[in-house]
Amino acid sequence: MNILVCIKQVPGTNKVEVDPVTGVLKRNGVESKMNPYDLYAIETALRIREKTGGTITVITMGPPQSAAVLREAFAMGVDHGALISDRKFGGADVLATSYTISQGVKLLGNFDLILCGKQTTDGDTAQVGPEISEYLNIPSVSNVSRIVEVQDDGLVIAMDMTTDIEVVKIQFPCLLSVDKDIFMPRLPSYIKKQATKDREIKVITLNDLEDKDEKHYGLNGSPTQVERIFPPDANTHQEIWNGSSMELTDQLYKKLRELKFV
C-alpha cells in the first residue's frame, strides 16, 4: 500500500494578534509546529501500514523551514518526505493550495490512499482535503472517525454525520480527512529522529510540475482575496438585571430568544 499524508506547519499558538495600525498579522517570534490535527492523519497511516505493509510519504507545501514537520514525521516512522516550495506559490488560498499539492502528488507517483487532517489551526477552513480529491478525480470522505476494515480494493470507514454514523466502503485510490481522536498519535522517537536526520527530502518547485503556468499558483491562482484582517470584538459586555422574579424571567426569555437559544 502506498500512502500519502498531507501535513502543514502552523504557528505554535493561535493567540496571534493583528497590528492595529498596519492590519497585518504579527507572526514575528511565534514558533512553528506541525498542525496538531495532522498528527492523527500520520498515526492513521502508520496503523494501516502495520497491517498492509507498504510505504508512507508525507508532503507539505510551505516555505523552506516547513521541512521541519517532515522531519518530525520521519521521527514518528514515516518513510519519505517531499516539500513543495517556491516563492511563486506564496499567498495561495485553498483552491491554489490544493491545485499545487495535487500537481505535486502527480509528480510523486501513484498513491492508493491520501490522508489529510480535519482542519488546520491557522486558516481553519477544512477545505483542502476535499479540494485535492476533486483535482485528482478520486472519491473522498471527511469526518472519518474510524477505519473499520482495510480491504484489497478499498476501505470500510465510519463517517461522523453528527446525528448518526455512516459506515461506507470507499474504493482506492481515495482521500480521507480524519477526525481528531481516530487514533492516539504516537510521540516522535529520539532513535528514529537520529536515524533519519540525513534522510533526503525531495523539494518540488514550479519547474518540476506538469503545469508550469505561474498564473495558476499562489496569489495569482487564488480566487479569494483577504481584504483585511482585524481582531474580533471581545465579549466584554456586562449587564446586571434587577427586578421581580417575573420581570427577570421575561427579560431572560427575551434574551435567550434574541441569542437564538430558544
Partner: peptide, 20 residues
Amino acid sequence: PIGRQLAPRLATRLRTGLTA
C-alpha cells in the same frame, strides 16, 4: 458535515473561491 465536504468539491470543479 455534508456542506463542508460538498462545497469545496464543487468550488474546485467550478474553479472558484470558497470562504469557510
